[in-house]
Structures are given as structure tokens and as C-alpha cells.
Nucleic acid binder design. Structure first.
Lengths: 189, 189
DNA sequence: ACATTTCTGGACCATCCGGTCAACAACCAT
DNA sequence: ATGGTTGTTGACCGGATGGTCCAGAAATGT
């Protein structure tokens, strides 16, 4: 039929996402996107639409991957309590200063872009559901008190985890961060 | 000697801060700042320096006020445990979607502007010290186990509080937010 | 080989950006 | 009243912005 794309759409999307992640939405210019992808303006617009649409695609891709990763983390672990602990400790890693792409974007754009707010809320509701299921499993396995509300515990865990993500974003050193994470895990689980 | 300022420097600073708060740094233009303050470009530059310097002044003012407010909250309450509870619950209010100016700014700018990162880290260290002192008081008053590390508890509380601030920023409805906050308070205090 | 269709790159556009500057206005001390 | 000093304003600047568009390149099916 016709000439095919000369680049891998998903790979470019990942590279551009990294830029949005590190620089934020407003501070990322079309020139940045061109330089990083190696594509011309026309190609970018033809493939992804305008800057905001492109951004939303990278964000949605990130959320989808994150949800899938969380689901795997929570289901693969033999003991649910260990999975929850792993989830809570996940913000502790050498790349913590980058924070979370979704969280950064939410903080930057939530007031002005309703679609980002919607995306964020949906993502955290999904995560809450996944974590709630895992909490319920931990209760069945006898590792968490069965009389407590599973969703309430899940939401507390998620909030605590987001707090850790944020402390990482401030540049808190990994050792302190790890200590706080363990402390929270001990108190909440 | 000469002509005095025709505007209140601090009041203008507060108005401009609100704009940075809601729109973020990059998305706030000089035109916005002019429109909101009612001042010309020259006046803004003469009074506050360039955009970034002006932004840092609003941020530092916010941090200073926040620290002072926290200090008062923690010291005024007769029982330290009540003060800590109040602190943890403070992100629950109708204006929660705005989030925290410092947190929003950190998420947006931490990667690129070292001075914002520095400001954030300093602010959270100060808050940690204030909270640690209050935790120690709660231990002396017999409301928290005395053998635990006060700073560790303080950091956990601060992280949890920041997590709540963030959940508010996502637009989580106030009732759910309050429920999570109480749940965290019950588990951590 | 060719025609068709799509992709590609860059020229082009109007607008807006942050920042400078000089002319003018307002105020105070004398 | 006047002079000196500072504040204020808006015009102006070079460059960057996001976005459009078109001429030509490239790859496919025939």
C-alpha cells in the first residue's frame, strides 16, 4: 500500500515520556521532543497529535504499565503480606529522585487539566482495588486482623507509599528513606 | 527622599504565590504576574528581580509561614499526642485539591532546579525536627511508647501526611480523605 | 517499472516569552 | 517651589513557542 513508519512508535513514546517525567509538561518544548525522538515536527504531529495529546498518551502508557506491574507484584508473591510489604518499600531505590511520573504530572497539572486529574483518580482507584484484594488475601492467610476493613487498610498503605515516593522526590538520601519505609511497614502491616 | 512604593510588597507576593501555586512555575507567564499584581514589568523586576527569583521568594515565604504555623500547632496543644493527630489530619479540608505549594513545586521542579530541591529538603528537615520534639513530648506524657525512636516516628508521620496531601491533590473526595487520615492516625499514633 | 499512498523534514506563521530600557510621574527634604 | 531621587509605565528586543503546511522522499502492490 504505502510507506511504513520508519520508527518504532512505542519506543519513541517511552523516550519522550522520560523527558516529560524529568522536565515536566510545561518545561518540555517541541524542540526537545524533536531532538530526543530524532523526528521532525510533521512526523510527531502525524503520529501522535499535538503536544497535549502526545503527553496524555505517554501518561496513559505509564499508568497501564504501572498497573500491570503492581498486579504482578501483588499476585506473584506467595504470601500476600510479603507482597504488601514489597509494594510499600518499592519507592526505595536509587532512582527515587525522579519520583513517579503520574504523581509529578498530577502535582503540576491537576488544577488546570481536568483530564490529568481524571487519569490520576482512575489510576489510584485501580491501585486501591488491587491492593484491597491483596489485603483481603493477607487477612485470609491470617497475617492481618480479619475484622478490619480491607479497603481502609489498602488506602492507608497507598497513601503511605505515595508519601514515600514524595520524600524520595525531595532528594532524601536512600538510607533515610529506607529507614522510614521500614518504619511505616512495621506500623501499618 | 523619594517616591515610595505604591503597592504592598508582601500582599502582591501573596497574590503571585497563589498563581504559582495553582498554575505551576512554567505555566505562569509574566503577563499573568502583571495582570494579577496590576503592576508593569519594570516594577516587578525592580521590586523582586527576575521570574525565578520572584518565584523563590514566594516559595520561601510559604515555607516560613508553614513552619511557623506548624510550630504553633505543635506547641499550643496541651497534649502532644493531640497535636500530632491534628498535624496528620491537617491535609483534610475543602481546599485539598490545591495540594501544598511546596510539594507541587518540588514535583514540578526538583529535577531541574537545585535551589528548589534544596529549599524542599531544608523545609522537611525543619518539619522533622519540630515533629520529633513533639513526639518526644508525647513520649514523656506517656501517650507514645518511650522506647521507640522519636525521629523515626516523626518521619513516618511526616511521610504519611505528605501522602494525604497528595491524595487530596488527586481530587479524592473529602469524606474518603478524612477516613484515610483517621485510619492512618489510628495506626501510627 | 510505475503509480499510489503515506511518511518526512523543514520552511513558515502568528504569537508569546522573559527581559531591558528610557522617558515620564510622583514623592520628599529642603 | 524646586531639585533630587526613586517608582512606574509601556514600548521594544531577540529569540523561542506551539502549530500548520507543502514539496519531495520512500516504500509498497500491481
Amino acid at each position: 500500500m504505502a510507506r511504513p513508519r520508519s520508527f518504532d512508535e512505542d519506543q519513541v513514546l517511552h523516550e519522550l515520556r522520560d523527558r516529560f517525567w524529568d522536565a515536566g509538561y510545561s518545561a518540555t518544548t517541541l524542540q526537545d521532543l524533536m531532538r530526543i525522538s530524532g523526528l521532525g515536527k510533521g512526523s510527531l504531529y502525524a503520529a501522535y497529535g499535538d503536544k497535549h495529546t502526545l503527553f496524555l498518551r505517554t501518561l496513559r502508557g505509564y499508568v497501564a504499565e504501572g498497573n500491570e506491574g503492581l498486579r504482578r507484584t501483588l499476585e506473584d508473591e506467595p504470601r500476600a503480606i510479603d507482597a504488601l510489604r514489597k509494594m510499600l518499600l518499592s519507592p526505595v531505590n536509587p532512582g527515587a529522585e525522579r519520583g513517579c511520573f503520574l504523581a509529578n504530572s498530577t502535582c503540576e497539572l491537576a488544577t488546570q487539566h481536568a483530564d490529568v486529574r481524571t487519569e490520576a483518580r482512575a489510576a489510584y482507584e485501580t491501585m486501591t482495588r488491587l491492593i484491597t484484594a491483596c489485603v483481603a488475601r493477607a487477612q485470609r492467610e491470617g497475617d492481618l486482623p480479619a475484622q478490619e476493613d480491607a479497603e481502609e487498610i489498602a488506602r492507608s498503605l497507598l497513601a503511605a507509599q505515595q508519601g514515600l515516593v514524595f520524600m524520595g522526590r525531595t532528594g532524601m538520601d536512600v538510607e533515610t528513606l529506607r529507614s522510614v519505609a521500614h518504619s511505616l511497614a512495621d506500623r501499618l502491616l
